[in-house]
C-alpha cells in the first residue's frame, strides 16, 4: 500500500500508537512469563514456612516434576482430551457453519446469534448443566435405560467421556465462527463454476469449498485446542480423580498446596508444548494470517 507508507513512513506516530498497548503486554504478559520461569527453578527456603521459596536456579526441578507419572498422565490427558474435543467440535461445527453461511437464507443472522448465545450464560453454569444432563437422573441416561441399552446403575458423569463432551460443547462456538466467516466470504459463484467444471458436487466441495475454508478451519481448531488443553473447569465438574488434566494440577498446586515450583514447571511446559505445536501446525497449514 503505497499511500499508507506515504502517511506513515519516517514518522513517530506508529510508535506512539503502539507504546501503551505493547507496554501493557510487555509488563503483564512477558514479565509474568519470566516470573513463572524463575519460580519454576526455585527450591523451598530451608527452615521456612510452606510456601516460602528461594531462587536457586535448580533446573532439575523440570526433570523431577516431569518424571512423575501422575503429572505426565495429567499432561498427556490434557492433550488427548483437547485433541478429541477439537476433532469432535470440527465434525459438528463444519456442517453447521456451512449450513449457516450457504443454506440459511434470511435466517442467517438469527442462526448466528444463536451460535454465540451460549457465551452469555456463565461458562461454569453451562458446564454444570451438562452435569445434570449427563448425570444418573438426566435425560440421556434415562433414555438409554428406557431402551434397555445400559444397566440401571449406569452414569455418563463423571467420566473422561463427559469431560471431552463438555470441552467439545464449551468451545464449539469458537470453532463454528471462524469457519463460518471463511465460508461466508466465499463467492458462491465459485461453487457453481466448480460444479459446472467438475460436475459432481462432492468433488466441487473437495476442490473448491474446502481449500477456501481452510483458514477458518485452522483458526477454529487453534481457538478450540488451545483453551481446551489448559482448561480445568470441565475436568473438575464433569470428571473425577482419574480424569485430572494439567490445569487441575497447576490450579491445586498453586492455590491449595502453595507448591509454586511444581505448578510453574507444569504451566511452563504446557505453554512450551502448545506454542511448538501451534507454530508447526500454522506452518504446515500454510496460513500465516491468523483469525
Amino acid at each position: 500500500m503505497a499511500e499508507a507508507s506515504a502517511v506513515g513512513s519516517r514518522s513517530r506516530t506508529p510508535y506512539l500508537l503502539l507504546l501503551p498497548g505493547m507496554a501493557w503486554l510487555a509488563v503483564f504478559f512477558v514479565v509474568p512469563l519470566v516470573s513463572l520461569l524463575m519460580q519454576s527453578v526455585q527450591t523451598p527456603l530451608p527452615g521456612g514456612l510452606p510456601g516460602q521459596y528461594e531462587q536457586t536456579f535448580r533446573f532439575a526441578n523440570f526433570v523431577d516434576v516431569l518424571s512423575r507419572t501422575e503429572f505426565l498422565g495429567a499432561l498427556g490427558r490434557s492433550f488427548l482430551f483437547a485433541l478429541l474435543a477439537t476433532v469432535a467440535a470440527l465434525l459438528i461445527a463444519y456442517p453447521l457453519a456451512y449450513a449457516i453461511a450457504l443454506r440459511a437464507g434470511r435466517a442467517k443472522p438469527l442462526f448466528l446469534v444463536l451460535v454465540v448465545a451460549p457465551f452469555f450464560v456463565s461458562f461454569v453454569l453451562r458446564t454444570i448443566a451438562w452435569r445434570q444432563i449427563l448425570g444418573a437422573e438426566g435425560p440421556v441416561v434415562g433414555a438409554l435405560q428406557a431402551l434397555h441399552l445400559v444397566p440401571s446403575n449406569f452414569s455418563i458423569y463423571p467420566s473422561s467421556l463427559a469431560v471431552i463432551a463438555g470441552l467439545t460443547y464449551n468451545f464449539l462456538p469458537f470453532m463454528t465462527l471462524p469457519i463460518y466467516a471463511s465460508l461466508d466470504r466465499m463467492d458462491t459463484r465459485l461453487i457453481e463454476a466448480a460444479q459446472d467444471l467438475y460436475s459432481s458436487s462432492w468433488t466441487a466441495f473437495r476442490k473448491v469449498t474446502l481449500p477456501i475454508s481452510m483458514p477458518g478451519v485452522v483458526a477454529g481448531t487453534l481457538l478450540t485446542f488451545i483453551p481446551a488443553s489448559g482448561d480445568y473447569i470441565n475436568a473438575q465438574l464433569l470428571g473425577n480423580a482419574t480424569t485430572t488434566m494439567v490445569g487441575n494440577v497447576v490450579d491445586s498446586r498453586f492455590l491449595v498446596n502453595s507448591d509454586y515450583p511444581t505448578a510453574s514447571v507444569l504451566s511452563f511446559t504446557l505453554m512450551a508444548i502448545i506454542l511448538a505445536m501451534v507454530f508447526v501446525y500454522v506452518r504446515r497449514a500454510g496460513t500465516e494470517e491468523l483469525v
Binding site: 505493547m22 503486554l25 510487555a26 503483564f28 504478559f29 512477558v30 514479565v31 509474568p32 512469563l33 516470573s35 513463572l36 524463575m38 519460580q39 487453534l222 488451545i226 483453551p227 488443553s229 489448559g230 482448561d231 480445568y232 494439567v246 490445569g247 497447576v250 490450579d251 498453586f254 509454586y260 505448578a263 510453574s264 504451566s267 511452563f268 504446557l270 505453554m271 502448545i274 506454542l275 501451534v278 491468523l290 483469525v291
Partner: peptide, 21 residues
C-alpha cells in the same frame, strides 16, 4: 508476534504466570 502469543497461551498459564509476578 506479541499480539498473537497471548491468544496462543492457555488461560491457566496466563493466570498462573501473573500470579507468579
Amino acid at each position: 508476534l506479541l499480539i498473537f502469543l497471548p491468544m496462543a497461551t492457555p488461560e491457566v498459564v496466563l493466570g498462573s504466570s501473573l500470579l507468579a509476578l
